[in-house]
Amino acid sequence: MASDGVVVEIGKVTGSVGTTVEIPVYFRGVPSKGIANCDFVFRYDPNVLEIIGIDPGDIIVDPNPTKSFDTAIYPDRKIIVFLFAEDSGTGAYAITKDGVFAKIRATVKSSAPGYITFDEVGGFADNDLVEQKVSFIDGGVNVGNATPTKGATPTNTATPTK
């Protein structure tokens, strides 16, 4: 695992066909100046998982989280898009600690492993708008004895992609 920078880890949970599971997305290594904004994309298989919603985690402190935390689910493109932009203008609602960034709610549709993997990152910046190093650890849903650990090695991303 990367020793510096922010680590975004997609949790690994267990479920069975027809059940709804909650998959946490963790941030670790949050910089001392916090995270003022970030955007990134995960990939998944809508034939295996139906993403039914995404909720902000406990490290989102904006009293009205829909102003700073936004997501979009595109089953036709097989992606989930995340956007966080601190909304106070003063840094008061920045992410300042490690913990759960988001909770992905999904219904298991198939007995195949439900991988959720890193696809791309736009950027991560602290309260001074300084770009942060970030790496990703894939996860998803274990169905029966299947284990979604494909790509469990962190993917280092030093520069934003478009």
Results as ranks from 00 to 15, higher is better:
Phe136Gly: 13
Val130His: 13
Glu131Tyr: 01
Pro148Phe: 02
Val108Leu: 10
Phe124Lys: 00
Thr149Arg: 11
Gly34Arg: 05
Met1Val: 13
Asp87Lys: 07
Val17Arg: 09
Ser16Gln: 07
Ile52Glu: 12
Cys38Asp: 07
Thr153Leu: 11
Thr117Asn: 11
Asn37Ile: 01
Tyr74His: 02
Ile54Ser: 03
Asp58Val: 09
Leu83Gln: 00
Val17Phe: 15
Pro65Thr: 14
Thr14Ser: 08
Thr157Lys: 12
Ile95Pro: 09
Asp58Leu: 12
Thr19Gln: 04
Ile95Arg: 02
Asp70Trp: 15
Ala106Trp: 07
Val21Gln: 05
Asp119Pro: 01
Ala92Ile: 13
Thr96Arg: 12
Asn145Arg: 11
Lys33Thr: 03
Arg77Met: 02
Val130Met: 15
Asp58Gly: 06
Lys12Trp: 10
Glu9Val: 12
Ala85Tyr: 15
Val30Leu: 13
Val134Tyr: 02
Thr71Ala: 02
Ala106Gln: 05
Thr147Leu: 13
Ala94Asp: 03
Asp87Ile: 14
Gly144Cys: 15
Gly53Ile: 09
Lys133Asn: 08
Thr107Asp: 10
Tyr115Gly: 11
Gly34Cys: 02
Val108Thr: 11
Gly114His: 09
Thr117Pro: 04
Phe82Gln: 07
Gly99His: 05
Ser135Gln: 12
Ser88Ala: 06
Val100Glu: 12
Thr71Gln: 02
Gly114Phe: 07
Gln132Cys: 08
Gly91Thr: 04
Ile104Asn: 01
Gly123Glu: 00
Gly18Trp: 03
Val143Asn: 05
Pro24Ile: 05
Ala72Phe: 00
Pro46Asn: 08
Thr14Met: 04
Ile79Lys: 02
Asp55Glu: 12
Phe101Gln: 11
Ser68Tyr: 14
Gly29Leu: 05
Thr107Ala: 09
Gly139Ile: 02
Asn64Ala: 08
Thr20Asp: 03
Lys162Glu: 03
Asp138Trp: 06
Val81Met: 01
Val130Thr: 07
Thr157Met: 09
Leu83Phe: 02
Ile79Trp: 14
Asn64His: 06
Thr147Tyr: 13
Asn47Asp: 11
Pro148Ala: 06
Pro46Gly: 03
Thr19Lys: 13
Ile73Asp: 03
Ser135Lys: 07
Ala112Asn: 05
Gly122Asp: 00
Ser32Pro: 08
Thr153Asn: 09
Thr161Val: 10
Ala36Phe: 00
Asp119Ala: 12
Val61Tyr: 09
Ile35Lys: 01
Arg43Ser: 05
Val8Ser: 11
Thr71Phe: 02
Asp70Arg: 01
Ala125Leu: 00
Ile35Leu: 07
Gly11Trp: 15
Pro31Gln: 09
Val100Gln: 09
Pro56Glu: 05
Ile60Ser: 10
Ile79Leu: 03
Val141Thr: 12
Pro63Val: 11
Glu22Val: 04
Gly91Tyr: 10
Thr90Glu: 02
Glu86Trp: 00
Asn127Cys: 02
Asp45Cys: 07
Asp138Phe: 06
Asp98Asn: 05
Pro75His: 03
Thr20Met: 07
Pro46Trp: 11
Phe124Cys: 02
Lys78Arg: 12
Asp76Met: 12
Ile80Tyr: 10
Val30Tyr: 04
Lys12Met: 14
Pro148Tyr: 03
Ile95Asp: 04
Ala152Glu: 10
Glu22Lys: 06
Gln132Phe: 03
Ala112Ile: 12
Gly34Tyr: 04
Tyr44Gly: 11
Glu86Cys: 00
Ser32Gly: 10
Val100Lys: 13
Pro154Lys: 12
Val30Pro: 10
Phe40Ser: 02
Asn47Cys: 09
Phe40Cys: 02
Tyr74Gln: 00
Ser110Gly: 07
Thr155Asn: 09
Pro148Glu: 03
Ile73Met: 02
Gly144Lys: 12
Ala125Ser: 02
Thr149Lys: 10
Gly29Asp: 04
Gly29Phe: 15
Val41Asn: 00
Phe136Leu: 03
Lys33Met: 04
Glu50Ile: 03
Leu129Arg: 01
Leu129Thr: 02
Phe118Asp: 13
Leu49Val: 04
Gly91Asn: 02
Pro75Thr: 03
Ser68Ala: 14
Lys150Ala: 11
Val121Ala: 15
Pro160His: 14
Phe118His: 03
Val81Gln: 00
Asp55Leu: 05
Tyr115Arg: 09
Ala158Gly: 13
Ala92Ser: 06
Asp45His: 07
Phe82Asp: 01
Asn37Gln: 00
Gly122Ser: 00
Tyr93Ser: 13
Val25Met: 01
Ile10Asn: 12
Ala125Asn: 01
Leu83Asn: 01
Pro24His: 03
Phe27Lys: 02
Thr117Arg: 08
Lys103Asp: 14
Gly89Tyr: 03
Arg43Asn: 15
Pro148His: 03
Val134Lys: 03
Gly123Met: 00
Thr90Leu: 08
Val48Pro: 07
Thr19Asp: 08
Gly15Cys: 04
Asn37Phe: 00
Thr153Gly: 14
Asp55Gln: 06
Thr149Met: 06
Ala146His: 08
Ser110Trp: 11
Phe82Ile: 02
Ile80Lys: 05
Ser135Ala: 10
Ala106Cys: 14
Asp119Glu: 03
Ala106Asn: 05
Asp119Val: 04
Gly18Glu: 04
Thr66Tyr: 15
Ala106Thr: 09
Asp138Arg: 10
Thr157Ile: 10
Ile104Pro: 06
Gly57Val: 03
Asp119His: 03
Ala106Glu: 02
Thr161Ala: 10
Gly5His: 05
Gly29Val: 14
Ile116Lys: 01
Ile116His: 06
Ser110Thr: 11
Ile60Phe: 14
Ile137Tyr: 13
Gly11Met: 04
Lys67Gln: 12
Gly91His: 03
Ile79Glu: 01
Thr155Gln: 14
Ile104Gln: 03
Lys109Val: 11
Arg28His: 07
Gln132Lys: 08
Ile23Phe: 05
Thr149Pro: 11
Arg43Gly: 11
Lys97Thr: 09
Gly123Trp: 00
Leu129Gln: 02
Val143Arg: 09
Phe40Lys: 02
Thr19Cys: 12
Lys133Asp: 03
Asn145Lys: 14
Gly15Glu: 13
Ser3Thr: 03
Val17Tyr: 14
Ser3Ala: 15
Val143Lys: 10
Thr66Glu: 05
Ser68Asn: 15
Lys97Phe: 12
Phe124Trp: 01
Gly53Cys: 12
Gly123Leu: 00
Ala94Gln: 03
Ser135Asp: 07
Ala158Thr: 08
Asp58Pro: 05
Gly140Phe: 10
Val13Pro: 09
Val81Thr: 00
Glu131Pro: 04
Ile116Met: 03
Thr19Gly: 07
Asp76Pro: 06
Tyr93Met: 15
Pro65Asn: 12
Phe40Asn: 03
Val41Leu: 02
Gly91Pro: 14
Val108Lys: 07
Val141Cys: 10
Asp126Glu: 01
Pro56Ala: 04
Phe136Glu: 05
Thr159Trp: 14
Val108Met: 14
Gly140Cys: 09
Leu49Tyr: 15
Glu22Cys: 09
Glu86Lys: 01
Ile73Ala: 01
Asn37Ser: 12
Gly89Ser: 02
